[in-house]
Simulated scan of single mutants.
Amino acid sequence: MSDSTEPESPPEPAWLVAANVVAWRRRGVGGQQLFPGTKSFKGGAKVYVAAVHWGPGGDRLTVIGRERHTGRWIVIDTATRHLYGFHPRLVHTPRVLARLNDVRNPGRFGPEEALDTSETLERYAQRYRAEVSPHSPHPDHCLCHACLTGECG
């Protein structure tokens, strides 16, 4: 009896853009409400950009990350403004690479393209965070990402 099933080799590593979810985000009328993280991800969670939707200006991304409540790896579209700290990363995690294969038009990069994309996405994220309720003052002791990092001036 011969066993024709060979053990699967690990998937080939891929260059992706990694980012973190903002700890707090402004929401509601005038941006006066603060919410931790996003509906799907905890604040500070690491996510990997699977696809960038450049058409409307890069305001939406398809990301892979661990879901807030269950810890399962999920693929979801999210707003660019909810992420920060974009940086290139060579990903070896089999679960991330498996989810990347499920994405339509995945964003596989080389190291230089990942660096350029991460810098561009960081600029977009800062711009989009500044556009959230631009004429409303931040509440006292605001914990939003822009106030914590000094982006809001």
Rank of each mutant, 00 (worst) to 15 (best):
G44M: 08
V132L: 15
A14M: 13
S2A: 14
S136G: 14
R27F: 05
C152V: 12
E6F: 10
C142G: 09
K39N: 09
H69T: 11
T80M: 09
R27C: 13
E8P: 14
T5I: 15
P134F: 06
F41M: 01
R99S: 07
V49L: 11
S136W: 11
P11D: 00
R95Q: 13
R127W: 10
G28E: 06
T117H: 05
D77C: 08
I76A: 01
V52T: 10
E113V: 07
V49P: 03
R104Q: 12
T93N: 15
Y124N: 13
E67L: 00
R108G: 06
P106Y: 01
R123E: 13
R129L: 08
V22E: 05
E131D: 14
L90D: 02
A18L: 07
F41L: 03
R108Y: 03
A51S: 15
T70M: 00
L97V: 02
R66Y: 01
Y48Q: 00
H69I: 03
V63G: 01
Q32T: 13
H82W: 11
G110H: 02
L61R: 08
R68N: 04
R95E: 06
G37D: 06
R60P: 02
T120A: 15
H53F: 13
C142N: 07
D59N: 15
E131F: 09
E112C: 06
W73D: 01
C147I: 01
V49T: 10
L115K: 14
T78K: 04
K46D: 03
A19D: 05
H87G: 07
V47T: 02
G150A: 07
N105P: 04
L16Y: 02
G71P: 09
Q33F: 08
S9V: 04
D102C: 05
G31K: 12
S4H: 09
N101T: 05
K39D: 11
H69C: 02
E151N: 03
F109P: 09
C144N: 03
K46N: 09
T149L: 13
S2C: 09
P94M: 00
T93F: 01
H53N: 11
G37Y: 07
V47C: 03
F109D: 04
R89V: 09
H53T: 05
V49S: 12
Y124F: 14
G85E: 02
C144V: 07
E113T: 11
P111V: 04
R127P: 00
C152W: 14
H135R: 10
G43I: 04
L61M: 03
A19G: 11
R25P: 00
I64N: 00
A125Y: 08
H92E: 12
L90W: 13
R68D: 00
H138C: 15
P11K: 03
V22S: 10
L100N: 01
L83H: 15
A98G: 11
R27L: 05
L148G: 11
G57H: 04
T78V: 12
A51M: 12
R129V: 05
Y128D: 14
G30P: 14
D3W: 08
L16N: 05
V22Q: 13
W54D: 11
T149C: 13
L97H: 05
Q126M: 14
A114C: 07
H69A: 08
L100D: 08
T149D: 11
